[in-house]
Amino acid sequence: MSRSVSEISIEKVRGHSSYTATDTLAVEEPLEIQLGYGPSTARKIKSISVTMRTPGYDFELAAGFLMTEGVIRDAAEIQQLGYAPEGTQEIAEEQVNDANLLPYQPRRNIVRVELESDVAVSLAHLERNFYTTSSCGICGKASLLALQSVCPPRARNEFSISAPVLYELPLRLRESQALFSSTGGLHGVGLFNEAGQLITMHEDVGRHNAVDKLMGAEFLIERVPLRNTLLLLSGRASFELLQKALMGGVSMVAAVGAPSSLAVHVAKRFDIALVGFLRDDHFNVYHGAEHISGFHSSNEEGPL
């Protein structure tokens, strides 16, 4: 059984009767990301994030998180990437299993990223953890300024795609989501080119983790920045996801769901074409209509 899914026995009800059946669930477990840094004579280890994720592509998730948060800019800055040594997990496996929860594997729930000794790490930057939570009290304007201070240089956005191709992308992403097909409980993200060809995709119970896995995989094989690509989200488009797209150099973001107001601000400020409510025959353009061909603008108010 893959670590990404788990089978349990359930009671299935149909009308006025029921029967016992087996259901497949998407696994959700915590992943701690640790950072090792400093000169060889005085190495330090710091826990910088804990996220609930679907096990699988953990190393890509960690690398993607560090890249999209502006901690590292080049895969060459990573000296070693692996699971932390045993004995570094505070909760014992038997304690969790005694609580009658699903099988839990703490030895593979901590990823440690060891940086090269000459890589400078800003502790103030890490501890501030700007713009990743809504409870930190940072306003939208401050979040945009913080993002501007760490984002890599942006090239002119020359991405172009046609509306008929856009309409096909959600189905292409869904057809590639093997775990979603078996569980129905995972978010999917896909990276597409101008012709609508799927470059790569990832799934996770957390949409931000799915994006980090995708970004991290591309980052580790040195294909970032992802210029002239479209990032498709199976759900809504939040500020955090636009932030990750920006850090990865993506030219366009399309979402099946709605964008947030701050996500639209990011798209406009950094010239990322942004589409929401992408369905079989309609979508909304929140920024960058000039990057989409194949439709005619009447310049008139449509139906409410």
Rank of each mutant, 00 (worst) to 15 (best):
P225R: 01
D271C: 08
T68K: 03
S49N: 11
K244M: 08
V13K: 15
M67N: 06
Y19V: 09
G190S: 01
L226A: 05
V256S: 07
H202K: 15
D98G: 08
Y131I: 00
S18L: 06
G56I: 06
F130M: 05
F283L: 15
G64L: 03
A289P: 11
V96W: 12
S298Y: 14
G82L: 05
T22Q: 14
L115C: 05
E222L: 02
A195H: 13
A142I: 04
S181M: 12
S4A: 15
A255T: 04
L31D: 01
N157L: 08
A84K: 09
N209Q: 07
I10T: 15
Q89W: 12
G206F: 03
N209C: 12
P39Q: 02
K44D: 07
M67V: 09
L231R: 01
P164M: 05
R236D: 12
Q34V: 09
Q105Y: 15
S149D: 10
A63H: 06
A217F: 10
V275N: 06
A245P: 00
E90D: 07
N109S: 14
A26S: 13
E94K: 07
I138W: 09
Y19M: 12
R279K: 14
G302D: 05
A76P: 04
E194D: 07
G235D: 10
L115E: 03
E114N: 13
M1P: 11
I48F: 03
E158L: 14
Q148K: 15
H187C: 09
K213D: 01
L274P: 10
L226W: 01
K44N: 10
A289G: 14
G64V: 00
L226F: 01
L145E: 13
I161F: 02
A254W: 00
E114C: 06
T51H: 08
K46P: 07
S134K: 11
T51Q: 12
G248C: 13
P103S: 01
A267E: 03
E28Q: 13
H282G: 09
G82A: 13
E114H: 09
Q177P: 08
A237S: 12
L262A: 04
T22F: 11
E175C: 09
Q89V: 09
E301M: 12
A163F: 05
E218A: 10
T24Y: 00
H282E: 10
A84Y: 07
D271A: 06
Q95F: 12
G190C: 02
E301P: 07
Q148P: 06
M201A: 14
Q79F: 11
L66N: 03
L147M: 04
R108V: 07
E240Y: 01
H291I: 07
R14E: 15
